[in-house]
Simulated assay, not measured.
Amino acid sequence: MESMRLAVVHVEQHELVWLISRQSEESVRTRNWRYGLAGNGPYRVDRLSGGVHQIGVLFAKGGDWEVDSGARARVRGRKGGPCVP
């Protein structure tokens, strides 16, 4: 099986994170949906730590990622919190 190459197709900058959407290179190049990925949520990249997290489509569309990102940032600021590297 050949591995699929991915391309970044959209980046949204927010206060605490970037949301990065990707798609198969073949789909982008040919504009043919048959080569596209389905049901893939974006990656959330933490602007402070650089941590990368894949989030689900519904989580992304519903805006719940914003609440989660804010909670992670507050915990990160506490000494000994679970997000502190």
Rank of each mutant, 00 (worst) to 15 (best):
V9D: 04
C83I: 03
R5M: 09
A38M: 09
L16F: 12
P85A: 12
F59K: 03
S3K: 09
R44S: 10
Q13H: 12
R78D: 12
L19Q: 08
V52F: 02
A71S: 01
Q13N: 13
E25A: 00
A73I: 10
E12P: 01
N32I: 14
P82A: 09
W33H: 14
S3E: 14
M1R: 03
T30D: 15
L6N: 04
L37N: 00
V67G: 05
I20E: 06
Q23P: 00
P82Q: 10
S21H: 08
V45P: 02
G50N: 05
Q23V: 04
A73Q: 11
R31C: 15
L19S: 04
V17W: 14
N32S: 15
S24G: 06
D64H: 11
Q54D: 02
G77T: 13
V28N: 05
V17C: 08
V67T: 06
P42E: 06
V57R: 02
C83R: 04
V67Q: 08
V84Y: 01
G62K: 05
G56M: 03
I55N: 01
R31E: 15
V11G: 07
V8W: 09
P85E: 13
S69H: 08
S3V: 13
V57N: 00
Q23S: 02
D64I: 09
W65T: 02
W33C: 11
A7M: 10
L19Y: 07
S49P: 00
E66I: 09
L37Q: 04
S24A: 11
G51F: 10
F59D: 06
R34Q: 15
A73E: 13
G81R: 09
A7I: 13
G50D: 08
E12T: 02
R72T: 06
N40F: 00
G41Y: 01
V28C: 10
E12C: 10
L6I: 03
Q13G: 10
D64L: 15
R22N: 03
R29V: 14
F59S: 06
V57I: 02
R74D: 03
G51Y: 10
V52M: 07
Y35A: 12
R31N: 15
G36Y: 07
H14E: 14
D46K: 07
R31Q: 15
Q13I: 11
G50W: 03
R5A: 10
G56K: 00
E12W: 11
L19A: 06
G41T: 04
A7H: 04
W65E: 07
R31H: 15
G50V: 08
G39P: 00
G50R: 01
A7G: 03
S49D: 01
K61F: 07
L37H: 00
L48Y: 09
E12R: 11
W18Q: 08
W65M: 04
